[in-house]
């Protein structure tokens, strides 16, 4: 049964409302003027040039990328480790492992933020790039866990049994047979973890120091003090990176489903 005309029109109108904020921010970034106006006056790359030559912004971009990549790598390792135990451990109940790995998703960010802030100040980890990467890694773990667990559960156990029967030890089977099969899922989870860190503001605000400011933290400061077209330009850069990462995850999952169909 097709949706009625009214519902379809509602869908289109609401779709427009959903994308208006993204469109407005992107458009205002290209203004020639020095205040945010919509529709923008003229069309120029002026504000992008300003952002990419300003050491505050370029430093923040570098910090964001470093923190995001570190957080994603840690999240992939941790999430995969948890998924292996959740899918196959004979000792630990699966639901317990999944609960441990998924909890960071439901705890309010403010609570996570003050918790890690207290601990890092106490143990002297506060201020380093690793401090934020570790905190962000925790937030990325659920995405890796969900993806890898689903991949593990859809694996054909006979492949691993065959490897074992041919004399491969458990570690060798894991690294040579299991890991290559769950790699695309782990990669998708890792990309989600990267974006989680790339976009995250609340924890990053609590852990920020003059030498540790991610892009969202600098934007946050600007948004609160006064809006400028440069903020729109940075916001556009932030969005473009997110969309590129989204396109990557989509490409990986469509390749995966294609190769599965071939089997």
């Amino acid at each position: 049964m097709r949706a009625g005309l009214f519902v379809r029109v509602f869908g289109l109108v609401f779709a427009a409302i959903l994308i208006i904020p993204t469109v407005v921010v992107t458009a205002t970034a290209f203004t020639e003027g020095s205040i945010i106006t919509f529709p923008p006056q003229g069309m120029s790359w002026r504000w992008f040039e300003e952002v990419l030559t300003d050491p505050v912004w370029t430093g923040a971009i570098r910090t964001s990328l470093t923190v995001g990549v570190l957080a994603a790598v840690i999240a992939v390792l941790v999430g995969t480790s948890l998924a292996l135990a959740a899918a196959r451990s004979g000792l630990l109940p699966s639901s317990l492992v999944v609960a441990v790995g998924m909890t960071p998703m439901v705890v309010p960010l403010v609570v996570v933020a003050i918790g890690v802030y207290f601990v890092y100040v106490r143990i002297g980890l506060y201020g380093g790039i690793l401090s934020l990467a570790l905190a962000h890694a925790v937030l990325g773990v659920p995405f890796v866990l969900v993806n890898v667990l689903a991949a593990l559960r859809s694996l054909d156990p006979h492949v691993e049994e065959a490897a074992r029967a041919c004399g491969a030890g458990p570690v060798r089977t894991l690294l040579r047979v299991t890991v290559p099969q769950i790699l695309p899922a782990a990669l998708i989870g890792g990309l989600f973890a990267f974006i989680t860190s790339w976009d995250e503001v609340v924890v990053a605000i609590f852990l920020n120091t003059p030498t540790l400011r991610t892009l969202p933290v600098v934007i946050w400061g600007q948004v609160r003090s006064g809006l400028e077209p440069s903020t729109s330009a940075v916001a556009t850069i932030l969005t473009v990176v997110s969309l590129v990462v989204f396109a990557l995850t989509a490409a990986i999952s469509s390749r995966r489903s294609r190769s599965r169909r071939v089997h």
Binding site: I20, V25, T28, W198, P216, A235, L238, L243
Partner: peptide, 17 residues
């Protein structure tokens, strides 16, 4: 598109709007 635009950017946009 909306989902993958950062939360901060979308909130900032509503401020502009």
């Amino acid at each position: 598109l909306s989902f993958w635009t950062s939360l901060l950017v979308r909130t900032f946009a509503w401020g502009v709007l």
